[in-house]
Structures are given as C-alpha cells and as structure tokens.
Amino acid sequence: MVNYHRAFASTLALSVFLAAPAAYAAGVEAGTLIENTATATYDDGTGSVSVPSNTVTLRVDEVLDVTVTSLNSGPVSASSGAAVLTFEVTNIGNGPEAFRLTANPSISGNDFDTDIDDIAVDTNNNGTYDPGVDQILTAPETTKVLAAGEAIKVFVITSIPGMVLDGQKSTVDLLAEAVTGTGTPGTVFAAQGVDGGDAIVGGNGADDNATGSIIIGITKVDLVKSATVSDPWGGTSAVPGAVVSYTITANVTGRGTVSDLVVADIFPAGTTYTAGTLALDAAGLTDATDADAGESSATGISVKLGTVAGGTSHSVTFDVTID
C-alpha cells in the first residue's frame, strides 16, 4: 500500500529506536509512519536543480502479543483460608492492548483443585496483595489497556478447600489473551490496530500462560509422655520414696512450623517435684521464672519451645518423688 500523506514530522521524531532482534519483537510502535523521500540534485546546464520524489508512506501495523510469568519463586505454602499466587503480564506487542485473564485451577496432576476467588491487579505495585487496595477485576477479568512494553503484576486469589492433607499440591494456570484476538502467528485482524491499521498476531499467538502452585503445609504436634520408676532399693516399684522420671516428647510433623509451642504438665497427686531436675533435650533448666525456657511451680512445670519446624522433636524431662 503506497499512501500519499501530509508530512507527519512529529510522528517520526519518536525516540531512539533500538535494533529489533527478530520479527514480532516489540519494535517501533504501531501507528508509526515510515516516510521515504529521495531528492535528486543535478546540473542542467543553467545551474543546480533539486527535485524531490513523491513521499512513500507506510504505517506500522500493530503486533498483538503477551507474556505471562509466575513471580512466585516456588510453591506457595498454605494450610487453610486464602492463598495468593502472583504473576506478571507483559504486553510485548508494539501497540496498546488489553488482555483478558483466565485462571484455571483444574490442572492435570493436581492433588486437589483450589477454589479461585478473584483476580486482582497490583494497583500500588508493591508485589504484595493488599485487600481493599489492589483492584479486584470483575468478569470478564480484563487488564487495563497496557502500552507497548508495559507490564503489570496480577494476583490470583484462591481459597483452600477443606479436607486437604499436608504436602498436597494444587497448580493454577493463568492465561492472558489479547482482547483484539488471538490465533496462529501472522493472523491478521484488518483495521483493528492503532489508527485503523491492521492488528497481526505475534509469535506467541497473542496469548500466553504460566502456572503457579500452592502446597499445603499442615503442621501437627504430638505429645508422648512416658515414665520410669526407681525405688530406693534399686527396683522399679512405685512405693513411697520411689523417684518417677517423666519424659514428655513433642513430635512436630508436617511442612510448616508451629509457633509459641509450650509444653506444660501438672504433678500427679501424691508426688513432690524434685527441684532442679527440669531439662529440655537433656540440658538443665532452672526452676525459676527467668530467661531460660523452663519454670516449675508448686503444681507443675512449663517449658516454652517457641517456634518449632515440622520434622523435629524435643523432649522435656523432670523427676517427682512419691510421697
């Protein structure tokens, strides 16, 4: 198509363009006019003459293309309630375009399918979902019009269904499709590009997807209590004067951690605590309420274990004497 246009000098003074590495990379913006004019100068015998050619003008059409990238470094841990997956959607076309977003939780290989609640845009661009701040998209979920090269962060907000087990995984796929249309690369949508130019599907098909995963971390604490009896005569009879050594083992299992874990026990009736016998993992603790983790009172003991990761165990020991 050869057009004869008025001069659009300002359109050409766009910016310094970098060399495009390949077809369908972002490149010059859609709607840019390419105007070519040659000028001849020559001597016709009477003097120097200058003659311009006609100006050949082409308008760069709009490439539709997008990338979707997961911004989660790995599976997102969750136990119940909401879990948020973060993605980046980038307009790699050369014109302004909006993209329709679809989150699909039914992915082959899932241990369970999480429930999709919403898709939200990182309005304040801080990379973290802020309820009430970040805009939740309404159906059909569609981004704003992104300029060529513009990227936005998008959150997929999901709810963990009940009856999930520790270690189970759920993958969610986020698809972005150019609103103008998608298809095999090279598909042309006539007159639907910038300034009435054509829109043409880029190398990714004007759509792209990425997946993010949620992994369930349910952490449990099991306490196991055991006792050994030593009577004054070297035997194991539970008689007055015999010493009972209690061991309480806290087994923490699961992928996550527990916090503020406290192991406490009450002395059995008819026994008396043997002062100075409280220990955690065989290391002695004072009976006083002080900086160390343990304390004892007239009625029982208490040991603060704090934050404990799944897969570890700790044992608390103390002795009492049968009255």
Partner: peptide, 15 residues
C-alpha cells in the same frame, strides 16, 4: 544532466 546525485534519508523507524 550532469552531476546527478540522489540523496535518500533513511526513515527513523527503519534500519
């Protein structure tokens, strides 16, 4: 005609 010279600026949007 003599000294015939055709000059063509390359449009900025192409290389």
């Amino acid at each position: 005609v003599a000294n015939f010279v055709v000059t063509n600026p390359v449009p900025k949007a192409v290389r």
